[in-house]
Design a protein around this nucleic acid. Structure first.
Ligand SMILES: [Mn+2]
Ligand SMILES: [Mn+2]
Ligand SMILES: [Mn+2]
Ligand SMILES: [Mn+2]
Lengths: 221, 221
DNA sequence: AAATAAATTTAGACTAACCTAAAAAAATAA
DNA sequence: TTATTTTTTTAGGTTAGTCTAAATTTATTT
């Protein structure tokens, strides 16, 4: 139906829309797709012809319902494949994304449904991101950013904002993963770093790190 | 490394080489790839430039060692994915090929190794075809064609020559699958059809069918 | 051996997706 | 409100892979 490239553009526009709410600029897309602005202009014209996005010269783009469906479908596939790679093939959460970038473009509706069933209908991928349903509904994240939590609060890690392998590997080294319980010991005003306790061990997290960790208050506390 | 299309050409040339032993003709490739002879000529020039095949104008092509390695690697991936789809996701043997045609082009060496391990290192795919090893070695099939067997012989089905869904579905309907034991009751000279017993049930198989079934003599007999 | 048919290659075009360089529009600063 | 900078678009090319139609080579008949 849609090409590898088209799906990547739509997915990118969807993800940018989640953050910005405004129309998405040519440059923003170019940066993520790792291409030139001129190429993006080319492509958005074609996507617009196919009624997948709305495009007005110099005004950026937004997804139509049709385009949003394709984007969510691609994200669904991506996250289900990531779950498969992680839970069945034992890939680390820092390794799954790159392979899933390829697998998400396999064309077969029944395949992804069977895989979903094989995995027991997971609701979140290895990074804590929600998996869109077949019909394209996706739970809104109500997570908080670790940096915004108060001293003495106990929280559970539930996701990350930065998905880069280097960041994920760093978290693994600290034994910080989805489900890990954190107790906030101290917030250092000077550099906005944070002292937290993880499994009884005290570690210092820079602001850069705490800004990229999503948490929920710990129910057990 | 190599494109989707390049891998498909190499795989096709490999499979034709298995049958013909001679150089492979432009037309033969065109027919399988479902493209025009002119396009094949174009492509074989490029594959030749990359030292993946030997090509002489009007004389057909043959694989170099380098090309053979790529072909076998692609076939390995195809058959491992087919095994996964069949044994884990419960797809029928008539359904796996089409999806594997896409999955075989996923680029990741570690992925296919992990999948292989996850499946317990299968040696044959759902159609009875041998899975090439990582190093590209592949057992030579010593199977016989059912049509060539004698009356009163008992054999075990071990593969098919025709992989089309319609043929595979017909075999499934007859409860004929890999491992099924067949007793040859009678060979009809008139139309070369065959009366066989499958699980105690007597069925009539046309020459068209028996020419496409691979068997080995039953050890139990 | 010449004539005819079939297979293969060449020539010239097309599309998707990309590029660079230049032009035009929008945003920002003076 | 000009002037300058940044963003976006246009113009013109490139590459992989495809096509049709015509030319050429090889194979098969007569
Ligand atoms: Mn990912
Ligand atoms: Mn993810
Ligand atoms: Mn197959
Ligand atoms: Mn097979």
């Amino acid at each position: 139906m849609y090409s590898f490239t088209e799906e990547n553009y739509l997915k990118t526009i969807y993800k940018l829309s989640e953050l910005h709410s405004k129309n998405i600029s040519t440059n923003a897309i170019a940066q993520i797709i790792q291409t030139k602005a001129a190429s993006v202009t080319d492509m958005v014209k074609r996507l617009s012809d196919k009624k997948l996005i709305r495009y007005e010269k110099y005004k950026g783009v937004s997804l139509t319902e049709k385009g949003k469906k394709v984007a969510l479908d691609t994200i669904r596939k991506h996250r289900i494949w990531e779950s498969f790679l992680h839970t069945k093939l034992k890939f680390g959460w820092d390794e799954v994304h790159e392979i899933a970038e390829q697998l998400e473009h396999i064309k077969s509706e029944v395949l992804i449904d069977r895989l979903d069933e094989f995995l027991g209908f997971p609701t979140r991928d290895p990074h804590g991101d929600p998996i869109p349903s077949k019909t394209g509904s996706i739970p809104k994240n109500t997570y908080k950013i670790l940096a915004d939590m108060m001293e003495d609060e106990q929280v559970v890690m539930n996701g990350v904002l930065d998905h880069s392998p280097i960041f994920l590997q760093y978290l693994s080294k600290l034994k910080l993963e989805i489900g890990t319980v954190l107790l906030i010991i101290e917030k250092i005003e000077y550099d906005n770093s944070m002292t937290v306790k993880i499994n009884g061990k005290t570690v210092q997290l820079s602001n850069n790190v705490t800004q990229n960790i999503l948490v929920i208050p710990d129910a057990r506390k």
